[in-house]
Design a protein around this nucleic acid. Structure first.
Lengths: 200, 200
DNA sequence: GATTACATATGACAGTTGTCATGCCGGGAA
DNA sequence: TTCCCGGCATGACAACTGTCATATGTAATC
């Protein structure tokens, strides 16, 4: 099978590519260091599979997966990520991702997952299977935007002018987010939202 | 040369170990998933080198490096980390670390670095060499403690009772930290301190 | 057509946060 | 020993934050 490896961390990308290439039935035809590059490679090289990190520059792995699905491209996606955030997993499933592994798993699982997915199956790290039933993102679009900026250290006034809202509205959104997430203040709220993948 | 790989992320640990083991002159004699395990392996297996991540459970790679130095153990350390935080690099140098690579570098550099260090040399990612002259941590011990807790979402009152300080003192420390780091508020201050490795 | 969810806004209030002046104590450097 | 630094504290003040009641408009849903 012809595979692309998309991962921004050079060492891991190189190591995985080299190891996968050693397998008789796997050929690594491209390596991408960010989402845009991955997308271009998938279009031009038409691989069977793509091993993809989520947190990459320019386009996240989930963005890429969604575009592949829209374009009805046959390339199957196996997500390989550090974090078991429920938001990520749910979004990946909706994007038609076939495999979802944690970077914490042993490497053997990667080859196994690729073969399983290539054969039409699925492959999901056992730690993640249960997350299908976990909480959905309770935040609205606006609440997310506001919370993201608050997490970057901006005050209500600054957030307001960036989003062309009134300063009171911003505080209302923050207050709602804080309550929805059962936090004490904006700091805890961003922590919680982040941990669940609700801001990405 | 006999090498130990200490890295908490299973996939990277496995991949690096497998690749290094393919080299004729390198033998991976142990793999550790956290700092304590790494320390024990170094004591029992007496390897020539240890490839070590910084951010690991229980003991960080820098903690381990410092203990190795104290114990005057001959094992040389090559740090392999995601972040080019000046605080990390400076602390590593003081701990007698011989190699410091970013996980962003290509893998070939790892083998090269190990050989160089084993031969008595040093190996430092070029992006990092200049950091020797960068800003030292301007925060005092107390300011760091307080800032860490503030970053976890605690308010002044809570921080005060955890550290057995008055609530006013906590706010003084936070105020000082905010000014030293040239931030607008505690949120930005934690972001800046974190980015520079001044909280770890 | 009524209900519900979201985006938006205002004004008021209490509580938290950031700043500053000022003070005390102990340890180390000049 | 005197002076400064760090740790610790207080009180006061302005600014920011979190909450609430209340209001309008626009979709979607029932």
């Amino acid at each position: 099978m012809r595979v692309i490896v998309a991962e921004d961390q050079g060492m891991l990308r190189g190591a995985l590519s080299a190891l996968l290439d050693l397998e008789d039935d796997i050929e690594v035809v491209g390596q991408a260091a960010d989402g845009e590059q991955a997308l271009r490679m998938i279009e031009t090289l038409d691989p069977d599979l793509c091993v993809m990190d989520i947190e990459m520059p320019k386009l996240t792995g989930l963005d890429v997966a969604e575009r592949i699905k829209e374009a009805k491209h046959g390339c199957k996606v196996v997500i390989l990520t550090t974090f078991s955030r429920s938001g990520y997993f749910q979004r990946a499933m909706r994007a038609g991702v076939k495999g979802f592994l944690l970077k914490d798993s042993p490497i053997d699982e990667l080859g196994a997952a690729l073969r399983s997915v290539h054969g039409g199956g699925r492959a999901v790290s056992p730690e993640l299977a249960m997350q299908l039933w976990e909480a959905e993102n309770p935040l609205t679009e606006r609440e997310r935007e506001v919370l993201k900026l608050a997490g970057a250290g901006l005050g209500a006034g600054e957030i307001a002018s960036r989003l062309f809202l009134s300063h009171g509205t911003v505080r209302n959104y923050l207050s709602e987010a804080i309550q929805k997430l059962d936090a004490k203040n904006r700091i805890e709220a961003t922590l919680i939202a982040e941990r669940n993948g609700w801001l990405g």
